[in-house]
Structure formats: structure tokens, C-alpha cells
Amino acid sequence: MITVKTKQNIQPMHSTRSLRMKNTAIGWSFIAIATVLICLFYFYPMVQALIMSMQSGTGTNLTFVGLDNYARLLQDPTFLTTVKNTVIYLIIQVPIMIILALFISVLLNDKTLKLKGVFRTAIFLPCVTSLVAYSVIFKYLFGQDGIINIFLLKLSIISEPIQWLTDPFWAKVAIIVAITWRWTGYNMIFYLSALQNIDHSIYEAAKMDGASPFQIFFKITIPLLKPIILFTSITSTIGTLQLFDEVMNITQGGPGNATITISQYIYNLSFKYTPDFGYAATVSYAIVIMIVIFSIFQFKVAGDKNA
């Protein structure tokens, strides 16, 4: 006690201040590296991309063209196709996957269910595969003589092999099936852990009041899980807007441009065709704007229903 008191008495005012200043400096030095690197590799490139999006030309010979690239964007049939494809993936794949994941997690949350660990591990397992590896596997599974066609033919569900990868419609189906396979278990884990936090007595009370399983699911489970459903749908939406690895390795965007995505178009514009970095940057900004709009939209929707 005595030492502390003397210390406080002896130390003059400016010394405590300089100590605080020193601590602030130390605090900033802890966050310095991360801040510098994020500015250098995220924000600075975005500024560069904005400047590039107003330039045009091949390779490094870029000239200023103002908003011409943005005008070109709205009339570019390939870009419009990439947007259309992405929207199709979004409105079909994301809801299917989320409903499937919710449904599986509700089944798994049953306390009396046996082999729970086996089911959970098996359904979560696809998440450990690399996107490239599983894409190549699915490319062969969906091949014309692939195992999926062999199965469907044997079960007499189809009479002729489906042209999974060469028909514009079925190629999209193949991509959607593959993505759903990879990510359903991932989303399921989020729902499972949220379900485990729900107080069981709520369900008991609902059952006592004679609620049907459907009512319990839609009136209790879904509203309680809303924040986590929102979180997973935002991450899935952002993931789908950036889709690249799967399409590149399963269909390479084909047949024609039937499965091409925005990311792949940016890649093609920069590294496959004659490089047009300016226009590629313009397409990049289209994705950024879409991600911002979707995030705001999804927050709004969830916010309204909460109120």
C-alpha cells in the first residue's frame, strides 16, 4: 500500500500523461501492420480499379475515356448473360440450399435421434474438399457416360443419357447441384449450433398447446433462427456473386456462355482474351455495387420482419 501511495505522490502530472501517450503509441503499433496491409491490398487496388474503369486500351496502353466503359457495360450481351446466369444461380440455388440445410438441421436436432454424429459428419464432409477438386469430380460424375447418367438409366428415370455439360439448361442444373452439394453441410452447422441454443421448454409449451410440427417449424424455429438465416443468406449471396472455381472447372463457362459468371468474365477479359484491364475493372465495379445492394436489401428485409 505504502509503495503505491508514494509512487502516486512522487510522479508529476506530465509523467502520467506521457505514460498514457506511450501506451497509445503502443496500441497503434499493434494494429499498424494489419491496417497498412489492408489499405495496400484492398483499398488502394479499389481506387486503382476506379481509375482504370475510366480508361480503355489493350495491355498497359490505357487512355482516359470517362464513362464510356460503363455505357458499354449496359450494352454488352456477354455481361448481361453473366448477370442473368448469376441471378439464376442466386434465386434457385441459395433458397434450395438454405431450406435443405434448415430441414436437415431440424431433423438432426432431435434429442432421441441415433447415429447423429455419423449423419452430421457425413453431411458436413463436402466442406473439406477444395473447390477445384470437387469441381473436377463433379465434372466426371456429370459426364455423358458418367455415373449419374448410368444410375438414372438403370433406375429407368431417363431413357437417354442427359447431356449434362453440353446442354445450356442441364449445365446450369449441374452447377447448381454441385454448389448445393458443397455448401449445404456448411450452412447446416450454423443452424445446428443456433438450434442448440434454443430453450427446449419453448417447444414443450408449444406441443402442450397442440401446435403441429409444421406450425412449430414456421412459427417458432424460423423466427428464432432469423438472424442466422440472414447471415448465411448474405454470405451465400456474396459467394454466388463471386462464383469462379466451379464454373471454370466444370463447364468453363460453356456451352456457349450458358454458365459463365461475372468473375469468370473479368478473368477472361484480363487474362484470356486480348487484355482489356480498363473494361475488366468496370465489370469489377458492377460486382461491388451488386454486393452492396444485396447486403443492404437483405438487411432491410430482415429488419422489417423483425419490427
Partner: peptide, 20 residues
Amino acid sequence: FLLLSMMIPFAALMVPLFRM
């Protein structure tokens, strides 16, 4: 401010990073 970088898709960074 740093959290905002989570909104930036890699596809948008790829071209400027490549040039950098």
C-alpha cells in the same frame, strides 16, 4: 473501416493487384 474490406470481392481486386 477495415471491416468494410470484407465487402470487396476478390474478383474486383484481381486486375488492379495483377497490375500492381
